[in-house]
């Protein structure tokens, strides 16, 4: 499915701070339905902070984030339930519950949020696991899996309720190049197949070029977005030395 032009997430003059320390100021952008948007930037520029604000884990100092028109820091129980049903998050190391099998991990949201009979839930769980290439691993514990498998299982859990938006926090961190490329392909397959919008934080250049429809680049010093667009265009024709340095792997100042 081609990315549409209807925005699904609106970030509106978002300012984030930890105490007095402002991470970024007045950041505004949109995520369009069906696209893969990559947030990039050097370490400490607030990529992960921005992501946490986008799915409502952190509260903004000012400004707001709307997903499908719902403010993510709303206090309305009904709105929050809709919001949560519509988003899934893959954390950096999978964040699977260590005491539960993969099937239990994936079925947890299904059992909590739906009235479906167990047999149906089991089927959905099996479908999700086979979608991420883990068919047959239903009864494994997370501790019995490799890093890449844990991430894929985390993705299956994030997709349990068929969310319209998926967030990824450094999906390729700690993976070997082949596993990492496999995960990229999986993300693309799910994005094209299910039409799920994806917001990804990463700084792996290979990943960025293979998955991103669009990138936004944050900068630590200016505390704002310094570039938006197709990564290939940015690499070729950006006038900003900070952006070029990032794509050419140039240490700063050289």
């Amino acid at each position: 499915m081609k990315p549409g032009t209807r925005s699904i997430i609106d970030v509106d003059n978002l300012t984030a701070s930890y105490g007095e320390n402002v991470i970024f100021r007045d950041v505004s952008f949109q995520v369009f339905k069906g696209e893969i948007l990559v947030i990039l930037g050097g370490s400490g520029c607030g990529k992960s902070t921005l992501l946490k604000h986008m799915f409502g884990l952190n509260r903004p100092a000012s400004g707001r984030v709307l997903i499908n028109g719902i403010d993510v820091s709303t206090n309305d129980e009904n709105e929050l339930a809709h919001l949560r049903r519509n988003i899934g998050v893959l954390f950096q190391s999978g964040a699977l519950f260590g005491s539960m099998t993969l099937a239990e991990n994936v079925s947890l949201p299904l059992e909590t949020y739906t009235d479906l009979p167990l047999e149906m839930i089991e089927r959905i769980v099996r479908m999700k696991l086979s979608l991420v290439g883990l068919a047959g691993y239903e009864n494994y514990l997370p501790s019995e899996l490799s890093g890449g498998m844990k991430k894929r299982a985390g993705l299956a859990r994030a997709m349990a309720l068929d969310p319209t938006v998926l967030f990824f926090d450094e999906p390729s961190a700690g993976l070997d190049p082949i596993t990492s490329a496999g995960l990229d392909n999986l993300m693309k397959k799910i994005n094209r197949g299910l039409g799920t919008t994806m917001v990804v934080v990463t700084h792996e250049l290979d990943s960025i070029f293979s998955i991103a429809d669009r990138v936004i680049m944050l900068d630590k010093d200016s505390k704002s977005i310094i570039a938006t667009g197709d990564p290939r265009d940015l690499k070729e024709s950006s006038q900003d030395p900070r952006v070029r340095n990032f794509f050419l792997r140039n240490p700063e100042g050289k």
Binding site: R123, R126, S130, L131, N139, G193, L194
Partner: peptide, 16 residues
């Protein structure tokens, strides 16, 4: 697209 994505044999099989 979704139909193509789902592997029918693993989904509809008896559970492990």
């Amino acid at each position: 697209n979704i139909m193509d994505l789902i592997d029918r044999s693993t989904v509809l099989d008896k559970s492990t």
